[in-house]
C-alpha cells in the first residue's frame, strides 16, 4: 500500500512539473485587446527605468487609467511578456534592441512615436585627463549586455580609439574589433558595477544616469557620443502591433509626454535624461 502511494505522489509531481514547463511555451496569444473600457494598464520595465514609468501614474490617473508597473530582472522578458499577453506595454528599450528581438524571436512589437527619453553616454576616466594619455593595454569597460556594448564600441570607433569590422551587424561585440593600435583591453562589465570602482579600470563608457546615481558629475566625460545617435537610442513605449491604434495606447503615450510626468522623471534622473520629443 505504502509503495503505491509513493508512486502516485511521484506521478502527480511529475505531472505538475511538466505542466509548469509547457505553460512557459505558449505561442503568441494574438494579444488583441478588444475591450473598449480598458482602464487597468500593465506596463513592464526593468529596475533602472522603473522611475520613468512610475512617473506617469498621475497623468494616467487624470485620464481615468490605473497603472500597474511590472519590473523584470532581465532585458528580454518585458518583450516576451507582451507577446504572451501578460502585460500590455513596456517602456525600457530602444528601437535597435526591439528590432533584434522581433527578428530573432518572431516578435511583432512596435514602438510608438514619438520616442520619449534618452540619456547621455560618455567616456569617463578617473586616472587620465585625455584619450591621448591612455597607456598601451589600458582597460576600458564597455558594458555587460549586447546593446550597450554595441553602442560603446560604435562610440569608441567614431572617436578613433578602435576600428570595428566593416561587415554590417546588429550588435557589435568585442571580437568585432579589427584595429586596436594601443591594444586596449575591452572589459565586459556592467557600468553600474564599475562606476564606484573606477580605480580598478583605466576608463569606462558610462551612461549619464549611472554616473549621476553614483553621486558623481556626468559632465566630466572625456568625450560624449554623438547627439544624433542619442536619439536613435531613445527609449519609448512598445506594444504588440495589433494594439498600436488602440485608444489606451495613444493615451499612454500622451501621459508619458505630460508636464507632470516630465517633472517626475527630471526630479529622479536630475538632468541625465532628456526629452526625445519636441514639446
Amino acid at each position: 500500500m505504502k509503495f503505491c502511494k509513493e508512486k502516485i505522489i511521484l506521478l502527480v509531481c511529475l505531472l505538475l512539473m511538466s505542466m509548469v514547463v509547457f505553460a512557459g511555451c505558449s505561442p503568441d496569444s494574438g494579444n488583441v485587446d478588444s475591450s473598449k473600457n480598458k482602464t487597468h494598464l500593465k506596463v513592464g520595465t526593468d529596475a533602472f527605468q522603473r522611475p520613468a514609468v512610475d512617473a506617469c501614474v498621475d497623468a494616467l490617473a487624470e485620464m481615468g487609467y490605473d497603472l500597474e508597473v511590472v519590473v523584470f530582472d532581465d532585458n528580454v522578458m518585458p518583450n516576451t511578456a507582451i507577446m504572451e499577453g501578460t502585460i500590455d506595454a513596456n517602456m525600457y528599450q530602444h528601437v535597435p534592441f526591439m528590432e533584434t528581438f522581433n527578428k530573432t524571436k518572431g516578435g511583432k512589437l512596435v514602438m510608438l512615436e514619438p520616442k520619449l527619453f534618452y540619456t547621455t553616454i560618455g567616456f569617463y576616466s578617473e586616472k587620465y585627463d585625455s584619450v591621448k594619455a591612455l597607456p598601451e593595454k589600458a582597460s576600458i569597460v564597455v558594458g555587460s549586455d549586447p546593446s550597450n556594448i554595441d553602442r560603446a564600441l560604435r562610440m569608441l570607433d567614431a572617436e578613433g580609439l578602435i576600428t570595428l569590422v566593416d561587415k554590417k551587424k546588429d550588435f557589435y561585440n568585442i571580437h568585432d574589433v579589427v584595429e586596436n593600435p594601443k591594444n586596449y583591453l575591452l572589459k565586459e562589465v556592467a557600468g553600474q558595477q564599475v562606476v564606484n570602482n573606477m580605480q580598478d579600470v583605466d576608463a569606462a563608457v558610462l551612461y549619464g544616469t549611472t554616473v549621476l546615481e553614483a553621486g558623481k558629475d556626468p559632465s566630466t566625460a572625456l568625450f560624449f557620443d554623438d547627439k544624433t545617435r542619442d536619439k536613435t537610442y531613445a527609449i519609448g513605449v512598445v506594444v504588440h502591433e495589433n494594439n498600436k491604434d488602440s485608444q489606451w495606447v495613444q493615451d499612454l503615450v500622451d501621459a508619458f509626454m505630460s508636464e507632470t510626468t516630465w517633472a517626475n522623471v527630471d526630479a529622479h534622473f536630475k538632468g541625465s535624461y532628456a526629452k526625445a520629443y519636441d514639446d
Binding site: D74, F101, P146, E188
Partner: peptide
Amino acid sequence: AGVVGAGGLGAVALLYGYQSF
C-alpha cells in the same frame, strides 16, 4: 563571476547566448 568581468562559460551563455538571441 561574469558580473565582475571574469568571463567564464556562464557569462558567455548569458551575454553571447541568451541576451544576443
